[in-house]
Design a protein around this nucleic acid. Structure first.
Lengths: 224, 224
DNA sequence: ACAAAAGTGTTCCTTCTACACCCATGC
DNA sequence: GCATGGGTGTAGAAGGAACACTTTTGT
């Protein structure tokens, strides 16, 4: 039996909504391989570190953000030989959904990190594929989980939640029916009692994320 | 930067339906650690082997089965320090759904492999958790994919497909409505034109798996 | 007053559920 | 004939889509 010793990394697909578009945090590589190309942030798993802990640590290093303010989950693992020319590297990819950061990319150790459109291609290594898998996971999970709230600040209006769905799914949703579905799905959102004025029009109720882990009934994408 | 060198393995959650129950292939460990306990089959990823290829190779070694006759997909990756007392081992778990094998566990390299009930607990390492994750994934995927057919032989009746759902979900489904849903879901199953006599009663049409990758509409579990 | 956004009511239509009913076989 | 499982029809309930309409603010 050959014991295969391998370097293990975590790579992060960090998604957020800024300026009305879905964006991903990318790092411009300063050293070979793939020097000058954009890549997903990531790094080596420490010798005595859990995979989830490594992902949380990288998230904090790249964004300065508390991992609890958004959502972080394991996405998939990629280990095709040759995916990294320096040697055998297996990477465990994580997907994070984050609210729009007031101070983006604070404590980053990489000078050239930036939010980029989520349809960016030409990334280093196999990161095009990892990003595509992350986007598909995010789009699917909005249907049957309350994770859309992870893109929102702690308190949000139904309209803000709707723009999350519309941005991620690239569709238009009827505001009236959406409002009914969200407020009638059990424990999706809980009203705070406060209201907020957004732009013009009648003030909207503010909601917090509810305790539900799954949506009943789900919010299905149109046209499927 | 500390480069963390780690052993990488694949572990398999192989599920099949035998004697009307959902069963998982387990190996009785002959050597420490966890000597004498049941464990998921698995092994090291070879130095120049893709992760999916390693999973297919292990599947063939454990069951003698062509990986194409069932369904194999990556499940999740587990790397908590200390999960293997021998050192840092990260395992990429795969989930397989297999038809009832005519000659089960043919070319296995482990003398004591056996199909065991899927609710077996007390497995070695963190395999209880991996098995539970695999079961939940399988149960969820039956809802919106045609993967239930992976438990069936190449040609099957609607009733046989229904027992797959009933076994995996541990529920009872109305045979009449189930028949309608399956045959009206686009490209879920395609009729072969043949019929087969199962036990008593009117002969049933035989179907093959259709080309659909997703079910429209999905078959939802009752009571959710 | 008017525009704009929030939120409710209603109608229509599709889908789900339960079950009555007929069909094709072995005994 | 009778039992057994395969398959269709149908009425009522439940849920979704489209949209008229009311509410509450800024200007």
């Amino acid at each position: 039996m050959t014991l295969s010793m391998t370097a293990v990394t975590v790579d992060l697909v960090l998604l957020t909504i800024r300026q009305g578009t879905l964006q991903v945090l990318l790092i411009r590589r300063g050293i070979p391989p793939h020097q000058g190309q954009w890549a997903l942030p990531g790094g080596f798993v420490l010798p005595d570190e859990d995979l989830d802990a490594a992902a949380r640590r990288e998230l904090r290093e790249e964004t300065g953000l508390d991992p609890h303010s958004g959502h972080l989950e394991q996405l998939a693992t990629y280990g095709t030989p040759g995916r990294d020319p320096r040697g055998r590297v297996v990477t465990v990819a994580y997907l994070a959904l984050l609210p729009d950061l007031p101070a983006p990319i604070a404590g980053s150790d990489a000078a050239s990190a930036a939010w980029r459109p989520c349809d960016e291609t030409g990334l280093a290594f196999d990161h095009d594929r990892i990003l595509a898998d992350g986007l598909e996971r995010a789009r699917a999970k909005l249907e049957y989980t309350p994770l859309a709230t992870a893109f929102c600040p702690p308190e949000f209006t139904v309209a803000e939640l709707r723009t999350v769905y519309e941005t991620v799914w690239r569709t238009h949703l009827d505001p009236r029916n959406f409002h009914r579905k969200v407020t009638s799905a059990e424990n999706f959102v809980t009203p705070t009692g406060h209201t907020a004025l957004r732009d013009r029009g009648r003030p909207a109720q503010l909601f917090r994320r509810g305790p539900a882990a799954l949506l009943h009934p789900p919010l299905l994408r149109p046209s499927r």
